[in-house]
Amino acid sequence: MIRVLFAAPQAEWEAYRGPLACAFEAEQLDVALACDHDPAEVDYMIYAPDGPVRDFTPYTRCRAVLGLWAGVEGITGNPTLKIPLARMVDEGLTQGMVEWVCGHVLRHHLGLDAHIKGQDGTWRKGAPPLAWDRRVSILGLGVLGAACARALAGLGFDVAGWSRGPKDLGVIGTRHGEDGLEDVLRRAEILVLLLPLTEATRDLLDARRLAMLPRGAVLVNPGRGPLIDDAALLAALDEGRIGHATLDVFRTEPLPEGDPYWAHPRVTVTPHIASETRPASAARVIARNIRRAQGGQELHHLVDRESGY
């Protein structure tokens, strides 16, 4: 019998209990899944950072922690966590992110706001450029960033991507390092942020780097709020150097009432809905990973503690 602890908020239990049971059965795993196992008897932990576990020390038998969310910045610095940590890479989450990013890139590329908001009797002529004449840059080429880059390239956009280390996405141009970052920023008519949050990426988009973007560029951030220096972005928006910012993530969530982003005419706020973990597909990811561990194989999507993701 494999004892799996569900260490996430109680509100998630009802959504995940059924899909997890089905996924464990499909993988032919004999699992006792509960929210209240004796810590000394837990073999695997399904974890969310806003769940009940803060101290991992009592979980002396636990072989791995399996994150429910894609982001791991809330756990990587925990000094009591000494065992392997796997982040969530879920096909449902990836597909949702691709749809959200493509939707908002197309919205800004086509200039849809002028027609949706501007139905005042004015006949506005002028077609947008075609996608291959629009330069889109993506910061972050992990699973989500790479999937969005491929989808946008498939729509015809001129896509380039940047990552901290070398990546090969075939026909999509990729760059890395500080010089590569400057290159992708200077070309970006639409910039998409899909980097993980680490000490190296916090406030990455500061005033100096925002100034590298072409005047009137659009910023789309479904990654992490603290990737952006908020004061620098608001100043760039006020001055018209940044044409628009569509923001799905923020330093404080929910975004507080009265925050300047809410009322800014060049900002679109969406409430952290770019994508989310879907219980059915996430349960399959977790069950497959436990099956791998039980068979002596390395877990998929292991977190590198030094890099922070």
Results as ranks from 00 to 15, higher is better:
residue 242 I to Y: 11
residue 239 E to N: 08
residue 261 Y to W: 07
residue 254 P to H: 01
residue 225 G to H: 11
residue 238 D to H: 15
residue 245 A to W: 06
residue 258 G to V: 09
residue 224 R to Q: 15
residue 253 E to R: 04
residue 245 A to Q: 14
residue 253 E to H: 03
residue 241 R to G: 09
residue 252 T to H: 12
residue 264 H to Y: 12
residue 236 A to N: 12
residue 229 D to K: 01
residue 256 P to D: 02
residue 243 G to S: 08
residue 229 D to W: 01
residue 246 T to G: 06
residue 262 W to G: 01
residue 223 G to I: 03
residue 261 Y to H: 09
residue 263 A to P: 00
residue 258 G to D: 12
residue 230 D to L: 05
residue 223 G to L: 10
residue 222 P to A: 12
residue 223 G to F: 11
residue 229 D to E: 11
residue 247 L to R: 07
residue 252 T to P: 01
residue 248 D to I: 11
residue 236 A to V: 14
residue 233 L to C: 00
residue 243 G to K: 07
residue 262 W to T: 07
residue 232 A to P: 12
residue 248 D to A: 08
residue 238 D to F: 08
residue 259 D to G: 00
residue 258 G to Y: 10
residue 240 G to N: 08
residue 230 D to P: 08
residue 260 P to W: 04
residue 242 I to V: 15
residue 251 R to N: 09
residue 264 H to T: 11
residue 236 A to Y: 15
residue 249 V to S: 01
residue 244 H to A: 15
residue 232 A to Y: 12
residue 261 Y to A: 04
residue 260 P to F: 03
residue 239 E to C: 03
residue 224 R to Y: 11
residue 251 R to G: 15
residue 256 P to R: 06
residue 223 G to K: 02
residue 254 P to S: 03
residue 228 I to D: 00
residue 242 I to A: 10
residue 262 W to A: 00
residue 263 A to E: 13
residue 238 D to W: 13
residue 227 L to F: 15
residue 254 P to K: 01
residue 236 A to T: 08
residue 234 L to M: 12
residue 254 P to F: 05
residue 230 D to E: 15
residue 239 E to H: 10
residue 228 I to E: 02
residue 223 G to N: 01
residue 256 P to Q: 05
residue 243 G to V: 06
residue 258 G to T: 10
residue 242 I to T: 13
residue 261 Y to P: 02
residue 227 L to K: 10
residue 255 L to V: 03
residue 241 R to M: 07
residue 224 R to T: 11
residue 227 L to T: 09
residue 250 F to I: 12
residue 248 D to W: 14
residue 222 P to I: 12
residue 232 A to R: 13
residue 261 Y to C: 04
residue 262 W to L: 01
residue 249 V to A: 07
residue 232 A to K: 13
residue 259 D to H: 15
residue 247 L to I: 05
residue 251 R to S: 14
residue 246 T to E: 10
residue 226 P to S: 14
residue 242 I to H: 08
residue 247 L to N: 03
residue 229 D to P: 09
residue 234 L to H: 04
residue 258 G to N: 09
residue 233 L to D: 00
residue 222 P to D: 07
residue 229 D to G: 07
residue 255 L to Q: 00
residue 253 E to Q: 08
residue 235 A to G: 03
residue 230 D to I: 10
residue 249 V to C: 13
residue 222 P to F: 12
residue 259 D to T: 08
residue 245 A to V: 10
residue 260 P to R: 04
residue 253 E to S: 05
residue 243 G to W: 01
residue 251 R to K: 11
residue 259 D to L: 06
residue 237 L to W: 04
residue 235 A to K: 01
residue 246 T to M: 06
residue 242 I to F: 13
residue 229 D to A: 10
residue 259 D to P: 03
residue 225 G to R: 05
residue 226 P to L: 05
residue 252 T to C: 09
residue 226 P to V: 10
residue 234 L to I: 14
residue 225 G to N: 07
residue 230 D to R: 06
residue 226 P to R: 08
residue 263 A to C: 12
residue 251 R to W: 10
residue 237 L to A: 01
residue 265 P to L: 05
residue 227 L to W: 14
residue 249 V to N: 02
residue 254 P to C: 14
residue 262 W to F: 03
residue 223 G to R: 07
residue 239 E to Q: 10
residue 256 P to N: 04
residue 260 P to I: 04
residue 224 R to A: 07
residue 262 W to M: 00
residue 233 L to E: 03
residue 231 A to V: 09
